[in-house]
């Protein structure tokens, strides 16, 4: 089946640039803005807190949450127990979190999926409205990867040529969820270059990477932190960075400006949230604790290993609200042009 995407370029150029340029260029808050210590509000927390992770322990969210929980404990001495509730692209964990008492003792990790889900269906809550973002801790771009020993094509230009010559038979491994960040980005790219290719949907990372490594597919859409092992070993190599300019960590890989792509790239972001109705003094303390923890050297070295220092990865509460709202606006426009929403 085919969709008309003629509107997508126009929308990218006109609307989005002015809409969100500010959000992605926001200056990071320096640790200097945060006090070194903050008094516990009426003794809160007097028992271990719970951090709910709506994904499995092995994935990007699980790893981030453990690193953040450790850093928060370093800063405050307060203990955090992690609970993983995977399923339904994070909707199940969020539903469970919303049912828990809003006393500030439980916080939640979530990713941009919550934002795109809200943009897709209004019945899904807007995370910037029902929760208070404590901190956005990771923001990253996606890339397109090929095998390190691939000979049919070796860079972006030869890849585009190859894909066109295969007339829709070239394959790329991608995530399965329609309307996801991955699928929308790829749609913009194929649309721009007039490429037709067969996307193969994988809902789990392992088999997705195996498909590229084992020669089952020609290319892979992914974020660099998730395939770092394959990048370091030379098994995979990036041929396109889906970000306006080249980050220093990938200075030899062409970015969007280099190949003439003008749409606003959709980014993967992960952050931490607390109930909107939690007591205000506790929320204030949690904001301080999580933002302070982000600046801890232990957390910074974790983020560096995940390529999360390639672009500015930090947003405070206001920055996160803006990031979420602006991103939701991009998705809504994109879904409209794709025919996913009316």
């Amino acid at each position: 089946m085919t969709h008309s995407f003629s509107g997508s370029k126009r929308f990218a150029a006109k609307f989005v640039l002015c809409l969100v340029a500010g959000a992605f260029a926001a200056a990071p808050a320096s640790p200097g803005n945060l006090p070194d210590k903050m008094e516990k509000p009426n003794g809160f927390p007097e028992r271990p807190m719970t951090m709910l992770v709506p994904y499995g322990p092995g994935g990007g969210s699980g790893q981030l949450s453990r690193a953040m929980a450790e850093a928060v404990t370093e800063v405050t001495g307060a203990a955090l127990n992690l609970e993983y509730k995977p399923g339904g692209s994070g909707t199940v964990g969020m539903k469970s979190y919303m049912a828990a008492p809003a006393d500030g003792y439980s916080v939640m990790e979530h990713i941009d999926d919550a934002t795109s889900a809200h943009a897709l269906k209004a019945k899904n809550p807007n995370p910037a409205e029902v929760f208070v973002p404590l901190v956005t801790a990771q923001i990253t771009f996606s890339q397109i990867y090929i095998r390190g020993n691939e000979t049919r094509f070796t860079d972006w230009d030869s890849y585009v040529k190859y894909v066109k010559s295969k007339k829709g038979r070239s394959t790329i491994a991608n995530v399965s969820k329609a309307g996801s960040m991955e699928r929308v980005n790829l749609k913009f790219i194929t649309d721009h270059f007039g490429m037709k290719m067969q996307q193969i949907s994988f809902d789990k990372g392992g088999p997705r990477y195996a498909a590229l490594k084992g020669g089952q597919v020609d290319a892979l859409f992914e974020q660099p932190g998730d395939v770092r092992g394959f990048l370091d070993s030379g098994d995979f190599k990036p041929i396109l960075t889906i970000y306006k300019t080249r980050p220093a960590a990938f200075k030899d890989v062409p970015a969007m400006n280099d190949v003439g792509l003008t749409f606003e790239p959709l980014l993967r972001f992960r952050g931490f949230y607390v109930h909107k109705d939690a007591p205000a003094d506790r929320v204030k303390w949690l904001k301080w604790a999580f933002q302070k923890a982000w600046h801890q050297p232990s957390f910074q070295s974790f983020n560096k290993k995940k390529f999360m220092d390639a672009i500015d990865s930090f947003r405070d509460t206001e920055g996160s609200v803006k990031l979420i709202n602006d991103t939701a606006a991009i998705y809504r426009k994109a879904y409209k042009s794709m025919g996913l929403v009316k």
């Binding site: 909707t91 199940v92 399965s176 329609a178 309307g179 809902d203």
Partner: peptide
């Protein structure tokens, strides 16, 4: 039951959000 593995659509969930986890 839950999310379909190709397009991420909700199937046989009977409107129960928790069943989306499969």
């Amino acid at each position: 039951v839950g999310i379909d593995p190709v397009g991420g659509l909700e199937r046989f969930d009977f409107g129960v959000a928790y069943l989306l986890a499969g």
